[in-house]
Amino acid sequence: MIAIACDHGGYELKQEIISYLNAKEIGYEDYGCYSKASVDYPYYAKEVGQAITQGKCEKGILICGTGIGISIAANKIPDIRAALCTDCFSAEATRLHNNANVLALGGRVTGPGLAIKIVETFLGTDFSGEERHLKRIQMLD
């Protein structure tokens, strides 16, 4: 199950990603926001982070205007490793090496076609489980 949320700057891209998830029959829980009305991104980062840390969802997708603010907010939550990705290589590497559990995207800087490919890569890549990467992840705690 994927937890997904955005602020007003990511609303349109979130709709595109939800369409993709529906088409691929990937389960998700939408934690908002539900319009282009101005909202505060830290609230939505917390909702997705808690869904993951409480075991309701396995991974998350967060979207704000640039992806920067919402990723900073998500990374304040213990056990959340949010990665802002602007390309598929980064999305693959952060899953392989960092076991990132939240993908952050910028709705105003990443077009929907690329964003869908990044989501597909992020969701389709497993953590390598290599000892060196496990050690580094443990050092983050």
Rank of each mutant, 00 (worst) to 15 (best):
1 M>C: 12
4 I>E: 02
9 G>R: 01
14 K>W: 01
15 Q>I: 03
17 I>A: 02
19 S>A: 15
20 Y>D: 01
20 Y>R: 04
21 L>G: 09
22 N>S: 12
23 A>R: 12
24 K>N: 08
25 E>I: 06
25 E>P: 05
27 G>S: 10
30 D>Y: 10
32 G>A: 09
33 C>K: 07
36 K>E: 09
40 D>E: 11
40 D>P: 07
42 P>N: 12
45 A>E: 01
46 K>I: 03
46 K>Q: 08
50 Q>T: 14
54 Q>F: 09
56 K>T: 07
56 K>S: 08
59 K>V: 05
62 L>V: 13
70 I>N: 04
71 S>Q: 04
74 A>R: 00
82 A>I: 02
82 A>S: 14
85 C>V: 07
89 F>S: 13
92 E>Q: 11
94 T>R: 05
96 L>A: 14
102 V>T: 05
103 L>E: 06
104 A>L: 09
104 A>S: 14
105 L>M: 12
110 T>A: 11
110 T>F: 06
112 P>W: 00
116 I>E: 01
118 I>C: 03
120 E>G: 14
128 S>E: 00
128 S>H: 03
128 S>L: 03
129 G>D: 09
131 E>A: 15
134 L>S: 12
135 K>T: 15
136 R>D: 10
136 R>I: 10
136 R>S: 14
137 I>W: 04
139 M>D: 11
140 L>P: 00
141 D>K: 15
